[in-house]
Amino acid sequence: MSWLSRVRNSISFLPKRQVTDTLWHKCKNCNAMVFTKEWEDNLQICPRCDHHDRIRAHTRFGQVFDDARYDLIATPDVREDPLRFRDTKRYADRIKAARAATEEKDALLNARGKIDGRAAVVGVQDFAFMGGSMGVAVGSAFVAGVQAAIAAHAPYIIFTAAGGARMQEGILSLMQMPRATVAIELLREAGLPYIVVLTDPTTGGVTASYAMLGDVQIAEPGALIGFAGQRVIEQTIREKLPEGFQRAEYLLEHGMIDMVTHRRDLRATLGSLIDYLVPAREAA
């Protein structure tokens, strides 16, 4: 064995997969390779092109709540696989796989905490759990979040990210649209604001219901927001859609949302809105 081989073999190298997974992050927008720590320190935003990546619920809670301190609100138990649905695999197996991959019960989590010193209840849809799809569990979690906000006399803030209704639950998933609408009306009857933060992507039945019913509509830069897909719309109207159609900036320009807010400014913006919409004497 040559001296070069002996030296090379004496050096411990990390496995290729471990290096890729732990040291580098590849931007989905510009394909730039960024140090994972740099990307995480930048709130999971690409420092090269400013692309706002999709983030998990607990990461979002940590970014939004003061000192990253919050208490999770229990997710209601619901009947799973009510239709005993099966396509290429059983729906029950898909749920088990999603839970194993995400370590979450379903696609919507709620937590209570403080934003700039003011009480708030925040819900976050996790796109990693079956595309954030809306089923009975998501509808129940949404209602539970609204009820917790009313009990705490605090605003309810929802971060949406979904591919739409969960097809494996059929009409039961579509029933969550009016159910969520009723819950929002209860929040308004209590004199509390409902604030929506649209993140990438927010589509389908979620867009057609609670995602577009906020007292204030905020979106992250570049977020895809729409009901039907762009290709479906083009095939239906037989016209080419404008550049940037269904992106947050296009919707802002055409009056469908109130503001596009960078992730680093989001907590301060939410704090200002709470100060404005909830009188201090009423804050929990």
Rank of each mutant, 00 (worst) to 15 (best):
S12I: 13
Q125L: 14
I195T: 00
L187K: 04
L172N: 14
N9L: 03
A149H: 06
L198R: 04
E80V: 12
S2I: 01
S140V: 06
A162Q: 08
P201K: 00
G145Q: 06
S140H: 12
R166Y: 14
R56I: 09
F142P: 02
Y70N: 01
D265F: 07
G226F: 03
V197F: 07
L14P: 01
D81V: 09
D200V: 00
I158V: 15
Y70S: 00
I45H: 00
S10H: 10
D77S: 14
L4P: 03
K37H: 12
V232I: 14
I184P: 02
A211C: 05
I73Y: 02
D81K: 09
S5Q: 13
V64C: 00
V146Q: 01
R267T: 15
Q230S: 11
G62H: 01
R90E: 13
T269S: 01
A183N: 08
G214I: 10
Q125G: 08
A92Q: 10
A144E: 12
L186A: 13
H51G: 03
S5I: 12
V136Q: 13
H52P: 07
F85H: 12
T269P: 00
S12R: 15
E103N: 12
L192K: 00
L198Y: 04
M33L: 14
K37P: 01
S133H: 07
D275L: 03
H153M: 03
M175C: 10
M1N: 12
E185D: 15
V260E: 02
G135E: 07
E243K: 15
T181A: 14
G205P: 08
P201R: 03
Q147V: 02
R84I: 11
T59W: 09
T160R: 06
D126K: 04
A165Y: 06
F227K: 03
D87C: 09
R17H: 10
V146D: 01
R6S: 13
S5R: 13
M1E: 11
G204E: 12
L224M: 10
D41I: 06
A101L: 15
E103F: 04
P155M: 04
V78A: 01
G214Y: 06
A223K: 00
H25T: 11
E253A: 15
A248K: 06
A183H: 06
A137N: 12
I237N: 01
P178S: 10
T160G: 08
G271K: 08
R179Y: 04
D93E: 15
M1P: 11
G163L: 12
V124A: 02
P155A: 13
G132V: 00
E40T: 11
T75S: 15
G132W: 08
N29C: 09
V232K: 07
T22P: 03
A165T: 15
E249M: 04
V197K: 05
R281M: 11
L186M: 13
F61Q: 00
T59K: 06
L251V: 09
D50Q: 15
E234S: 10
V216I: 15
I73S: 02
I55S: 06
I11M: 09
A183L: 05
F85Q: 09
V182R: 10
A223N: 06
